[in-house]
Design a protein around this nucleic acid. Structure first.
Lengths: 219, 219
DNA sequence: TGTATATTCCAACATTTAATGGATTGAAGG
DNA sequence: CCTTCAATCCATTAAATGTTGGAATATACA
């Protein structure tokens, strides 16, 4: 009966290995980035605003927990999520956090969803409108991420090109902008810019991971 | 633009608070216990085989992350999951762990699913057979947990009473035993006992949390 | 073959965390 | 009111973790 306790502890310890990965802010950010498609260490470090060494150390944690896979591509090493279910877990964790933590809710309200920001009621109706061309779904992430996976009917204009390419967007229809997810600020910036320029812009918080569209492999 | 990085970090930090809760084996065990219904600190400590003080400390972590709620009941303080979604996250985390960690898979195989252990193919067919009375679904957890929530058509015989109450079980039908979940050893013990006594017994790994049946409140 | 580049490994430090023992709160019950 | 009991708080120690800098590896390229 003493042995039973030991084996039991071992089981929970294994599960805790997965939990540990999700207990560090930086690792969470890396996971969110990897939800957008596969990336090299250098890119991950730059996007997460940390040193390459630190990124490498965190990615090592992800690797020993078998949550990511690596592949050499020329000079670089590409990291990608080992499975779609990793992205699903990330979505579920941050969703639960948003449900339970008031501090997070308040911080998120500051970023987006200002009083005048209307949120698209549900996905089905948004997609219906997008299919008909009544609204423009705009993906403001870098081009590579758009290519790896994007929302149905979405058009790609990276945030840093948006100002120059405003002419491509119609002024008589709503622009629904999205980016990497609720913690990415690109879509919020895009909406702000678009509104200043006289467009009717809406901020869509969800990204591809939240839509369950993660590309397991970028081609 | 510097402020953007700061707010972003803050957001991930909040989500990491939730992840941290799931990064400790003991806390995971406590969460699994709370999935079975509300419990006092003393009971939780006893079931998890830790001191009351340590249990209290871990429960404090759960409370500050707003994942559990407390309520005084006479002399004792009862803990329960703050929301059904907490149980769902626990299930998703341990499911992902089982998918990704070979060590965990191997450890689980030792406990149950021996070569001669047939696993019920799917839930629908199991429930159909249970409804018709073709199999007996047996809940071997303590009575209080059975009362808080149990599988449809399940009969309750706590493991420590099983030997005396064997006569209540039919020998001409399969007994499908379950307990708290895949990391609980009670059902495995029950199956072993039943088989020794000549019953046809099957170990069902899932518990109420895995079936999505968590009782938000015990009456 | 030698050099440049991307990434990882190793060692060190500061911080955080798990766990334990002693003191404290706060309600229950005589 | 005083005692009892459950649970928490506080202080301490040992272990684990995040982070940084320097050295090492391994591949691409010339």
């Amino acid at each position: 009966m003493k042995g039973a306790r030991k084996t039991k502890d071992l089981l929970y310890e294994q599960v805790a290995r997965i939990g540990k990965v999700f207990s560090s802010p930086k690792r969470l950010e890396l996971i969110e980035l990897l939800c957008q498609g596969e990336k090299t260490v250098e890119i991950l470090a730059r996007e997460a605003a940390i040193s390459v060494k630190l990124a490498s150390a965190h990615l090592r944690e992800l690797r020993t927990a078998h949550l990511v896979a690596t592949e050499r591509q020329g000079k670089n090493i590409c990291y990608r999520l080992a499975d779609k279910s990793v992205a699903e877990l990330w979505v579920q964790i941050h969703t639960l956090a948003e449900e339970r933590l008031i501090e997070l809710q308040m911080a998120l309200q500051k970023i987006a969803a200002r009083p005048d920001d209307l949120v698209p009621s549900d996905r089905a109706s948004l997609m219906k409108a997008a299919r008909k061309g009544e609204v423009v779904v705009l993906d403001v992430r870098p081009t590579e991420e758009y290519l790896a996976a994007h929302l149905p009917f979405a058009r790609s204009i990276p945030l840093n090109e948006l100002r120059q390419r405003l002419a491509e967007l119609p002024k008589d229809r709503s622009i629904v902008a999205y980016c990497r997810g609720p913690y990415c600020l690109m879509a919020a910036d895009a909406v702000e810019l678009l509104k200043r320029e006289g467009y009717e812009a809406i901020h869509l918080r969800d990204g591809v991971a939240e839509w369950g569209l993660v590309a397991s492999r970028q081609e």
